[in-house]
Amino acid sequence: MKIAVCIKRVPDSETRVKIASDGKSLDEAGVKFILNPYDEFAVEEALRRKEQAGTGEVVVVALGPAAAQETIRTALAMGADRGVLLQVDRIPADGLEAAKALAAELKGGGYDLILFGPMVAELLDLPCVTTVAHLEIDGARGTAEREVEGGVEVVEFTLPAVLTTDKGLNEPRYPALKGIMAAKKKPLDTKPTRVGQGGLEILALMPPPERKDGKIVGEGAAAVPELVRLLREEAKVL
């Protein structure tokens, strides 16, 4: 079972967001970057599939700046076998450009599963199932459950396939000290990469509209009639 997982380096959600002086990007000074928590589910699922098959390889691939090597090391510390960094100065705003670069790297790699999105699936002409909440693989066939509005779809697909994992598919493992030490020696291939501009241009990065200061309506059940009045007459949502 050879599995590729595309991972992304993102600011920690606890981070304070400050807009850079160009008005278009994040001021990265003092920002802590982490492995995208969504991608942790994908890495975990890949590791479990390999463990279940008893053999195979989990390759993590990231498109990003040199600093994304650290993100790749996190996934290696969780247990992935090797990493590939498609190094660019800046991740393009147009996801299709990122997908094209990642698809070019993955093409012909002999992967049974690629944990990435529908764009890469279309580019590689592979079957694709998104937001997988439960997964079973049996030889060259897989069964996935995906949560859709109004129910759960049970979907069968053939391998090789592209899957996106739903948040909450599993409980991602924490890298153990042993894993962190081992990760330092695992292969990490850095490839300078060119990506197109794409058709998405950033005009501005802006703070969200200030929420009007809220008010404490009162204490306990006695405050409920006033709350309902405010929701009706002031907020006009009832």
Partner: peptide, 8 residues
Amino acid sequence: KALLKLKL
């Protein structure tokens, strides 16, 4: 925590 304005 921020809004991105994009042109297509």
